[in-house]
Nucleic acid binder design. Structure first.
Lengths: 202, 202
DNA sequence: TCAACTGTGTGACTTAGTCACTGAGCTACA
DNA sequence: TGTAGCTCAGTGACTAAGTCACACAGTTGA
């Protein structure tokens, strides 16, 4: 992790409540945001309102989507909301540009963030485009604890699918004694079997 | 356009033939590539071999996917091939990093490229995820000349769909006297009608 | 001129997403 | 403490998209 504490000391920290909109699709960009604590979810939305999580901005990360917007002269191509209380520093564009030129650390920091997001997006694109919904669901579940406090809706958003599709797959997995379903909660009871379960039998 | 002629004068220009692989999925990254002429197509591939064009690197652009790979320590998440004879300069990583630190122009140039790619990918993601295949096909056709020298396969790759699906939509459009189909060629004969044609009737 | 290749058309099938609706569980508050 | 109104989950019916297999037409080159 690159230390840019010194560079950012001058900027004041603000606090956002949970579930607050950070920016919306089509909105113009105004400030760089550096998240100091909490988590911001960046997602895109289909015509029918379905959400698909693209990535998260967590502590110590910068929202480089702003840079892309400012330099490209376009508006935000996605939405972002806070998932928890978020502490963040807002950096005006002029200050940001000045820091890029004056601080090697800050420059490297921003470059790293850019790279990471690009990689994240490529990976997400790959997954959504090349892997089946069931495979994405399976992999997502395997990455979690045995106790998964998510609704089917939230799960669908994480893997970029529809709630009904996820519900149906989960129901099949429950019938196979791989998981147990509770309201807003999934209990993973046979991780091994899940990792081996390639196809869902009707 | 930012002028970085001076910064790049020291690097020799190589030439690649058409249809040559530039990098493959999973490959490690070695050099930065700056395209001086011609076009490189970057695409991802599904498990069944279907390709989806992500973006193109054309004259004066740098393949920042390399930066993302180098900084992220990961391998190429996509493939790239030349679409024509391509002139390019290869810049070793050490020289690239040195240029970033020493030249404001070069830095801005790379930043702009990063931003543009991020925006491209977001846009592509949006389109593939939120728009119907027919809508993407319709929009793609409307962006072309009336004389479109592409096979259905190539068209499918551009919009990220399957050849058969594209073929079927095109056939419907031909029945409606909107286009004429020839081998390896589509003639757009009624642009207005195409732009109004919202739904394909069976 | 014909074999091999590339491009197109199409039927049958599977998977995913959408729509509409039902009912179960939770919670606030009258 | 009962219940209205909410969120969450389940499901049938349908459509869109992708996959698979195969037929055949146009093109190319030995």
């Amino acid at each position: 992790m690159i230390d840019i504490t010194e560079e950012l000391a001058a900027f004041e920290c603000i606090e956002l409540p949970a579930n607050a909109s950070v920016f919306q699709q089509g909105q113009a960009c105004e400030n760089y945001m550096l998240v100091m604590g909490g988590s911001v979810k960046v997602f895109s939305r289909t015509a029918t309102g379905r959400e698909c999580v693209l990535y998260r901005i967590t502590s110590g990360e910068i929202c480089i989507l702003t840079t892309a917007c400012v330099l490209g002269g376009n508006h935000y191509p996605a939405e972002a909301v806070t998932e928890s209380t978020v502490q963040a520093k807002l950096i005006p564009i002029a200050n940001f540009n000045q820091l890029i030129d004056s601080s090697i650390s800050f420059r490297k920091f921003v470059f790293n963030n850019f790279s990471q997001r690009l990689s994240d997006l490529m990976l997400k694109f790959e997954q959504i485009n090349t892997e089946s919904t069931y495979y994405r669901l399976q992999q997502f579940l395997l990455q979690q604890d045995d106790h998964i406090p998510l609704t089917h809706e939230q799960l669908a958003q994480e893997i970029g699918s529809a709630r009904e599709v996820v519900s149906r797959h989960l129901k099949q997995l429950e019938k196979l004694n791989i998981i147990t379903l509770r309201r807003g909660l999934i209990l993973l009871i046979d991780r091994d079997k899940l990792s081996r379960q390639k196809v869902i039998v009707k």
